[in-house]
């Protein structure tokens, strides 16, 4: 874990209630997709835990702006962090109103992240709504590892909420969209798509009812990322404890947020 000051480069609405924030700062504590960061917002006591949608270290920028920054600095401080979040409460609404240039204290490198080595040849990544963002960094990493057919299922309620479909497609993944009202893609839930696919392993993030439905449908091993109200985000307060199948407890923020299918006490 590391605390660093990040500067907002861009913060824009990309779908209904959904925002994409790009920040510049030291991303070196972020080890893998599935981890989260904890943001300090002025006027709020507790930090806001947000999953990492995408991250790059100082030397890995692929766009023009990144290249320019490398030329001037090339240091860890020039890392780039992308967060996609829903404005659903006072904190995230405040976040949505922040402009470019705003500086934020961010705790980075929190949580365990996804076990990419378990993916097999044809993994499926399942994201529902606000659970989609961490799947983007995972998809990118799995595509980069080569030789895999990466399938992605994105679930939304309706057309207005859709985001990142084309970004996943640009990574080279096979993308399926399900909407509850049928306005785009498959009418129904992510599990309706999942039932038709062949896959070696699954990764899922989304609302609890979605995770429960996947647990009933999935035919392979897999893992889920969970969310919980957190006090600290680094394992100190026991605010986010979860009872596991073996009777032990684990902290969503520290041992999680990703847990293996077999670990969970549904």
């Amino acid at each position: 874990m590391k605390e660093a000051i990040f500067e907002i480069r861009e913060n824009k609405k990309i779908a209904k209630n959904t925002y994409e924030m790009v920040l510049a700062g030291d991303t070196t504590a972020i080890e893998k997709p599935g981890q989260f960061v904890n943001l300090k917002l002025e006027g709020f006591f507790l930090r806001r835990p947000i999953s990492v949608c995408d991250y790059e270290t100082g030397s890995a920028h692929r766009d023009g702006r990144g290249a320019a920054e490398q030329a001037t600095a090339g240091s860890a401080a020039q890392g780039r962090l992308t967060l996609v979040y829903k404005a659903v409460g006072e904190g995230t609404e405040k976040m949505a109103a922040l402009g470019a240039g705003t500086q934020l204290s961010v705790l980075t490198g929190l949580g365990n992240g996804y076990a990419q080595e378990k993916a097999g040849d044809a993994p499926v990544l399942i994201g529902g709504g606000a659970g989609i963002p961490p799947m983007y960094a995972l998809c990118k990493a799995l595509m980069a590892s080569g030789g895999k057919k990466v399938q992605v299922i994105l679930g939304f309620n309706t057309k207005d909420e859709i985001f990142y479909q084309e970004k996943f497609e640009a990574l080279g993944a096979e993308v399926h969209v399900a909407t509850a009202d049928g306005s785009v893609g498959e009418k129904g839930f992510v599990t309706d798509v999942l039932a038709k696919l062949e896959y070696t392993y699954f990764y899922a993030c989304g609302p609890l009812p979605m995770l429960r439905a996947i647990e009933k449908t999935a035919k392979s091993d897999g893992e889920y990322s969970f969310e919980e109200r957190m006090g600290c985000g680094f394992g100190a307060c026991m605010g986010c404890s979860m009872k596991m199948a073996d009777g032990s407890y684990k902290r969503v923020c520290k041992e999680g947020p990703v847990f293996g299918r077999e670990e969970i006490a549904w």
């Binding site: 709020f44 006591f45 507790l46 904190g91 919980e228 109200r229 957190m230 006090g231 307060c237 026991m238 605010g239 986010c240 404890s241 979860m242």
Partner: peptide, 9 residues
Amino acid sequence: TPRIAETPN
């Protein structure tokens, strides 16, 4: 859970 809530300060 939830075990945590926020308040002003």
